[in-house]
Write a protein that binds this DNA or RNA. Sequence first.
DNA 1: CTGAAAGCGCTTACAG
DNA 2: CTGAAAGCGCTTACAG
Lengths: 346, 346
Amino acid sequence: MVDQKSNNKLTIKDIAAIAKVSKGTVSRVLNKKPGVGDKTRKKIEDLIKKLDYSPNLIAQNLASQKTGNIGVIIPHQAEYYLSNPYWPVLLSIITKAAADVGYTILLSTALEEGNVDSAYDFIIKGKRVDGIIAGSEFLGEKQLSTLYYYNIPFVLIGKSPFVQEYYVDIENRKATEILTTHLIHQGYRRILFIGGPETILNVTERVQGFYDALSHTTHSMGIVCHTRYEKPNIKMIIQNQMKNGFSPDAVIAGAGDLVLCTLMVLRELNITIPDDMALASFDTLHLYDYFTPRITAIHQPVKKLARAAFEMLFALIVGKTLIKTDCILPCTLRIGESCREKRIIS
Amino acid sequence: MVDQKSNNKLTIKDIAAIAKVSKGTVSRVLNKKPGVGDKTRKKIEDLIKKLDYSPNLIAQNLASQKTGNIGVIIPHQAEYYLSNPYWPVLLSIITKAAADVGYTILLSTALEEGNVDSAYDFIIKGKRVDGIIAGSEFLGEKQLSTLYYYNIPFVLIGKSPFVQEYYVDIENRKATEILTTHLIHQGYRRILFIGGPETILNVTERVQGFYDALSHTTHSMGIVCHTRYEKPNIKMIIQNQMKNGFSPDAVIAGAGDLVLCTLMVLRELNITIPDDMALASFDTLHLYDYFTPRITAIHQPVKKLARAAFEMLFALIVGKTLIKTDCILPCTLRIGESCREKRIIS
DNA sequence: CTGAAAGCGCTTACAG
DNA sequence: CTGAAAGCGCTTACAG
C-alpha cells in the first residue's frame, strides 16, 4: 500500500483520537489505573491490542519521573569479571528478578580495574535509574557521597567498611573455617592460605576463619599470603613456602579468582594433587566438574545472593520498610578428590 | 546546612537562570553545537562544571528523538549463553565499543531457550533503542517483519537464511576444513563429527567443510551426527559409533557448546585422549589452557566479530553508506596435544 | 550570537 | 467516570 504511513509511530494521541476519548483515559487503562468505565476500558484495550500499540517508555519515564531501570555496577573490568562465573550469574539472576516486576537492568562496569568512578558517574548522572545494586569492592566515600547526594536507593553486594545497612553477603569467616577444618581432618598439617589483597574486607574475614580453624587444633599449622587478583604471583608464593621450610602439604586458594592460577602453578611445578599437595578453594570454578581431580571447595549461594539483593532494593524503591537491612547467607562445602585423606607419612 | 535543598535535581532551567541566558543557549553548549559566543560558552561551561550539572538523559532522549541506546539480543537463556565465553565476550566488547561513542547497551535475552519473541518485544516496543545487534539463531520472519515495520537498523551476528545484508560471521566452512585436514594429516582415519542441530546454518556450513576435507583424501573417512546444544546426547552417539563398527579414532566437537560434554563423556567411558581417541573442537573453551591435554581447536575471532558488528550498526545509525554490507572473518587453528600424530597401528 | 516558543509522548492532579 | 490542562526536562527550528 502506498499510503501506509512509513511513520508508523502510534502515540497515545492517536489512540485517544481513534477511541474518541482523552489521552488521560488511555493513559489510565495503559497503567491499569482505576477511574475508567468497564466499557470504555474494554474498548481501549481492544484497540491497543488491534493496533499493536505500545507506549513510548521514554516519555512515560519523563512524565512519571520513574525510569523503570535499575543500575548494576560491577566494579571490575570485563576481562576480569568474565573470567569467573560469579558476576555473570549474579547479573543474570538480577536481570530475571527485575524483569519479573517490570524493571530493566542498566549495566555499568569499571573501564579499568580498580577505577569505579566512571561506572558510578555513568549510572547516576543522567538520572536514569531508580536504584542501584553495586559490588562493594572499591566503593569509596566519594561514590557514597554521590549516592547519598542524589538520594538514590542502593544495595551492596558484599560488606563495606563505610556502609552499615542495605547489603547482602555470605558467611566468609565461617565458611573458611569449615573448609580449613575439613583439611585438618583429612590429615593435612601445613596449610598455606593464599588470599586476595588484605584491603578487601572479605579477604580478612576469610583469613580470620582460617585462623579460627587452626586455633582448635594443635596438629596443624598455617600460613597466610596475600596477592592481587588480576596478576597473582602465586608461583612465587608457593616456591617461597616450599623453600623456606614451611613446605605446605595443602594450599587453599582463598577466592575463585585464584583457583585456576594455583592449579596451573601446581601443574607447572609438577606437583601432583592431592598426593604431593592438596588443593582446596573458596568458591567453585566455572565448569567445575570438568576438572580432574575435582577440587574441594566452598560453594557460595550466588543465585540466592542475587535474589536477596534485588528484593532488598525493590523494597527500598517502593518504599516498603525493611525489617532486616542486611542479609548474610551461609555457604556449603563441596568435597572433591583434591583433598583426599592423607596417608600416614608425615 | 538545613536549607540545602534535598531536592538536588538541577535542571537546564536552573543553569539558564543562574547564567542569565536562555535554556536554548545552555542546550547548545551542552551539545557542543555552534551558535554560542565564546565568552557565553565559557561562562556556561564553567557553571556546569562548578555545579556538577548533568542533563537528564531521558528528557534529552525524548526531545531529540534519539535514545543513545543500542539493543543487544542474545537469543538464548542465561543458563545457556553463560556456559560459554562466546556471548559474554561479544557483549563486553560491544559495550566497550558503544561506550566509546556515547552509546549504552540494553541487553535482552530469551527467557526460555529457543523463544526469542519476548526478547525482541522487550527491545523494540517501547522505542528505546536506536539500533539492534542480534544473534541470528532462531530469527524468524516474525521478528524480521517487526524490525522492518519499526524501521530500526539492525546487524546480525551470524548468517540468516532470511537476511542478505548487514551481518557479520566467521568462515565456518573453511575453518572446519582446515581442522579436519589437520586431523587427517595427523593420521586419523575414522573421524566422527558431532554438530549442533542441522536447522542451524553454521552447523551445515561446518559439515560442508568437514566433507570438503574428506573429499581430498582416500585415507580417511567421516561420519556426521547431530545433537541439540542444550541437552546433547553425545554419550549415546559415541557409544553407537563404537559399537556399529565405525569405531572412530577421532572426534570433532562441532561447537564450543559441545566440547565439554564430549570431554566428559570420553572420560566417563575411560577413553584416553589422544591415545584411544583424538578430540578436536570448533571454538575454544573458557579456561582453555587449564585442561590437559589442551584441545586442538579452531579459534574464532570473537572480539573482531563484535567490533565489526558494532561498527556496521553505528554506520547504519548515523546514515553512513556502507560499501560492504557483510563481514566474514577467518579463523585460526590452535594446536594442542589432543590430536597428537597417530602411531602406525591402524 | 541569542531568546521565545513549540514540541517530544506521556502522567497526573484538578474539575466537573 | 471522563476531559482539559499543566508539566516532566530537554531540543530545535524560527525570528531577530
